[in-house]
Amino acid sequence: MKISDFELYKSLLYEKSGLVITPDKSYLLDSRLTPIAKKWNFASLEAMTLQLRAIPDNKLIKDIVEAMTTNETSFFRDTKPFQIFQETILPVLLEKRKIKKTIRIWCAACSSGQEPYSLAMILKEKEALLKGWRFEIMATDISDDILDQAKRASYTQFEVQRGLPIQYLMKYFMQIGETWQLKDEIRNMVRYSNFNLLDPMSRLGSFDIIFCRNVLIYFDEKTKGDILNRMSTQLENDGFLLLGGAETVLGITDKFQPNPEKRGLYVKTQPKTDTPSATGSGSSTSSTSSFTSGLFKRT
C-alpha cells in the first residue's frame, strides 16, 4: 500500500474509532480491506481508496472500521477473570446490593458474545442462590456484523471447544447440523447494542461491573485515558472494572486502582475527603477506603 493511502486509512480509523494502525500493520489493511473493496464492487483496493478520498461515504467507512477491528475471543477467555467475577465480585455485590437486588454488567467490546454469555452461564448455574435478583448484562460492540453473530449465538465446533466446559455445552447448547446453538434461556439474559467507545456513554446508564478486556490495547494512551475516565463516571463508586491481562491503568488514569492480588481487577479511586479522620490511628487513608470493604485484606 502506498504511504499516502496508508495515511488516509490511518487517520480515518483513528478519527472514527480510535484505532491506531502503525506502519508495520499496513499488511492488515491490505488483507482486510480487499474483501470490502470487492463487496462494494470496486475493481481494486486502490479504486476504493480513490473513491474514498473524493467522496467519503459513511456506510463504506463503517464497513472499513468494522473490518479493521479484531474479534478474537473465546468462552471463559483467560479463566481467571471469571473466577474473580464468581468468587470475589459477586459475593461483595450480593451483600452491597441486597436492598436493590439489581446488578448491571457492561461487556464493552463484546465481539461475538462469548464473554457476556459466559457470565450469563455462571449466573444461570447460581440461579437458586440468586432468586429474586435481577441481572442485566449489556453487551456492546462497534461492529453490526459481529453483534448479529453474537445475537444469533450459533457457534462452530471449534469455538465451543475453546474454554467452554463440556457440561456447559451439554446443558446450554443444542446441536444443529454442524453448529452449536446457545439456548434461549442464556441468550435472553444478554442485551446487545451498537456502541463506539469514543461516543458519550451516559445513554448506557450506570453499571456495577464493567468488563473491558483486550480492547484498550488497540488505542493510543490518550484515547485509553479518555475511555477509562468516562467509564469511571458510568461505574458505581463501589463497582468493579476488569481489564485484559496485558492492560493497565497505571500512567493512563488515576480514576482506577488495581487490586494488587487479583490481576486485571480494578476499583474506583475514592475522592479524597478534606476532613481528617476522627477515629485517629488505625484508620486507613481515604484514597484506599475501597480496599477496606473486606474484599481486599490489607492488614
Binding site: 473465546s74 479463566t79 471449534f158 471447544q161 475453546r162 474454554g163 466446559p165 463440556i166
Partner: peptide, 10 residues
C-alpha cells in the same frame, strides 16, 4: 494445541 490446553485447564 489450544483445545487440548483449554480442556486441561478446565
Amino acid at each position: 494445541t489450544d483445545i487440548i490446553k483449554s480442556k486441561f485447564i478446565q
